[in-house]
């Protein structure tokens, strides 16, 4: 049975799509057949981050409306044979998603795939609710700042009350915290919330800490999921997060400030 993983946050711009792309690619590279679905109808972005924007013919809404079948809409990733993308429609709005329609598509995907990653839009309206409704696991993407933490708290409340698992009284959705754009130096100076602060407020297990990194923007603009960039700190942190998602226990990297060496201190970094 496939596992449905929603990447959600409440707040926009915290890195949901970057995370969806990285985690999906990471799972596929580990040999698991994975599909990543863009739920951000009308504001399609995942195709850009995955670098498949020129190959979008049919989309998620076409499949829901029966205008195309899944095989026509699924885009096979160029880099990884086990990875597929189901893009969002750019010309519709979120109301095109219905609970029955999304449920049917997810059921059909579950027959073929091991992991279904749902890239949620920001907010708490239809799109976000549809993305989280069928989830087995939720990766709550949070930036170390108060408004993002509060919105994540709100989304956690939604997961506990509005998801299918909550409504049907099944085992609750497994919740993980993924802290993105973390900058240890600014935590030391008190400008940013620390990992411990966020963990204490949200009280859910930590899946990973992704450092603020030049590599993320570069990867997004070139349409390559950052996890492929194995030399970069963000790529390595995402790779660790995927391993933890698969049950491994790893120490957290990039959460301490790097001591600058003598030469760096003189010449700057």
């Amino acid at each position: 049975m496939a596992q449905i993983i929603v990447v959600t946050s409440g707040k926009g711009g915290v890195g949901k799509t970057t995370t969806s792309a990285a985690i999906a690619t990471g799972l596929a590279l580990k040999g698991h057949k994975t599909v990543v679905i863009d739920f951000d109808i009308g504001l399609r972005n995942l195709d850009l981050i995955m670098g498949c924007e020129r190959r979008v013919v049919y989309d998620f809404v076409n499949v829901i409306n029966g205008e195309a079948n899944l095989n026509q809409a699924l885009i096979k990733d160029k880099r990884c044979p086990k990875l597929f993308v189901l893009p969002a429609s750019q010309t519709r709005d979120k109301d095109a998603l219905t609970k029955e329609g999304v449920g049917t598509v997810l059921n059909n995907l579950a027959k073929d795939f091991e992991y279904i990653i749902c890239d949620s839009p920001a907010g708490i309206e239809t799109g976000a609710m549809m993305a989280l409704y069928f989830a087995d696991v939720a990766i709550v993407t949070t930036n170390p700042e108060v408004s993002s933490v509060r919105d994540s708290d709100r989304i956690l409340g939604m997961l506990q009350s509005k998801s299918k698992r909550a409504e049907e009284g099944l085992e609750p959705v497994i919740e993980y915290l993924l802290l993105t754009r973390y900058c240890p130096a600014r935590v030391t100076t008190g400008e940013m919330l620390s990992v411990e602060d966020v963990e204490e407020i949200l009280a859910i297990p930590l899946l990973g800490v992704i450092p603020e990194s030049q590599a993320v923007l570069k990867a997004s603009n070139s349409g390559v999921p950052v996890i492929i960039d194995t030399e970069s700190d963000a790529g390595m942190a995402y790779s660790d997060a995927v391993d933890r998602l698969l049950g491994e226990e790893l120490p957290f990297r990039f959460i301490m400030e790097e001591k600058k060496g003598f030469l760096k201190r003189i010449f700057g970094s």
Partner: peptide, 8 residues
């Protein structure tokens, strides 16, 4: 017996 989240 659970955390009460924002909005609840």
């Amino acid at each position: 017996k659970q955390n009460i989240r924002s909005g609840q």
